[in-house]
């Protein structure tokens, strides 16, 4: 009887880590999006166009969603070529 406990533990650890990381990054992206919305609506109230915060938040959101997309593409590669 040979059970690969090591591989089992690795699989479990990797699954946990990847899941939490991807969901956290995605949630950060969503947080950034709502920051941008807040910045945009705040700017409408003011006369001076202070675009900094909104643009930075949008860039952050793009980075987050890009990372998630990369994780999905890696998943697709795993499916296609095991």
């Amino acid at each position: 009887m040979h059970i690969k406990w090591n591989a089992l533990a690795q699989t479990a650890g990797a699954s946990f880590g990847i899941t939490v990381a991807v969901v956290a990054v995605f949630a950060l992206g969503i947080l950034a999006l709502s920051r941008r919305e807040a910045a945009l609506s705040a700017r409408e109230g003011e006369a001076a166009p202070a675009a900094g915060g909104g643009r930075l938040a949008l860039a952050g959101a793009y980075v987050c969603f890009g990372l998630c997309a990369a994780a999905v593409v890696y998943g697709l590669v795993l499916i296609a070529a095991p």
Partner: peptide
């Protein structure tokens, strides 16, 4: 994630 990781590791 669990499905893909496990099938990659052969479980």
């Amino acid at each position: 994630t669990v499905i893909l990781t496990s099938s990659h590791m052969g479980f």
